[in-house]
Simulated scan of single mutants.
Amino acid sequence: MSEEVTTANPVPEAKPKAKVEKVKQPTVEELPFSEFIANHYLPALAKAFANLGITDLNLQLEDLQIKGNWKNQIRQFIIYFAKQDINGQKAFSCWDAGSQPSVIEPFLIDERKATLDLLVFAVVQRLNAQKWLAAN
């Protein structure tokens, strides 16, 4: 009886790769409230209005309110934030012809996570429902 002996070349053990921890950059929505609003939201909102042909839009952040107006303040709106959190409670009002807002309505109440695009889209849609932005 002959025994067959095979010698296998031992496979060198693979060295574990060094774990490189990537520092996750915060999304724009994770930035501090005032930085998000000033550097991202207001410019995105202005761009959305400009794309609709509205070039005289004035936007400003006062406390926790974003105030917007155009057509020499004939058309106006306010987005109210309950606290410095874009995912917190929000409200909206709009009015025209020099009157004051008569109704403050809940705004994006069913959304769990507000994104920049959603916040812009919601304002445009709400004002478009007033037939202020485009012919419906």
Rank of each mutant, 00 (worst) to 15 (best):
1 M>A: 05
2 S>N: 10
3 E>F: 08
4 E>Q: 11
7 T>I: 15
9 N>A: 09
10 P>M: 05
11 V>G: 00
13 E>V: 13
16 P>M: 04
16 P>N: 06
17 K>T: 14
17 K>W: 03
18 A>V: 13
19 K>H: 12
20 V>I: 15
20 V>M: 06
21 E>V: 14
29 E>D: 08
30 E>Q: 12
32 P>A: 03
32 P>L: 06
33 F>R: 09
33 F>M: 07
34 S>H: 11
39 N>L: 12
39 N>G: 06
40 H>P: 02
41 Y>V: 02
42 L>Q: 11
43 P>D: 08
45 L>T: 09
46 A>C: 00
48 A>G: 02
48 A>K: 08
49 F>D: 05
50 A>R: 14
51 N>A: 10
55 T>L: 11
63 D>R: 12
66 I>Q: 07
67 K>L: 12
70 W>Y: 14
70 W>F: 15
71 K>T: 10
72 N>A: 13
72 N>R: 09
74 I>R: 11
74 I>D: 15
76 Q>E: 14
76 Q>T: 05
78 I>S: 03
79 I>S: 03
80 Y>H: 14
81 F>R: 02
81 F>E: 02
84 Q>E: 15
84 Q>S: 11
84 Q>P: 01
85 D>T: 05
88 G>Q: 02
89 Q>M: 04
95 W>L: 03
96 D>G: 03
96 D>P: 00
96 D>M: 10
98 G>F: 10
98 G>L: 06
99 S>Y: 11
99 S>N: 13
99 S>A: 14
100 Q>A: 13
100 Q>W: 10
100 Q>T: 15
100 Q>D: 14
100 Q>Y: 10
101 P>R: 09
103 V>H: 05
105 E>F: 00
105 E>G: 02
106 P>R: 10
106 P>Q: 08
107 F>T: 04
107 F>L: 05
107 F>A: 01
107 F>W: 10
108 L>F: 02
108 L>A: 13
111 E>L: 02
113 K>M: 06
113 K>D: 04
114 A>G: 02
116 L>K: 09
119 L>T: 07
120 V>N: 03
121 F>G: 01
122 A>F: 03
123 V>P: 01
124 V>A: 01
124 V>H: 01
128 N>M: 07
130 Q>Y: 08
131 K>E: 13
134 A>C: 06
135 A>Q: 13
135 A>N: 13
136 N>G: 10
136 N>E: 14
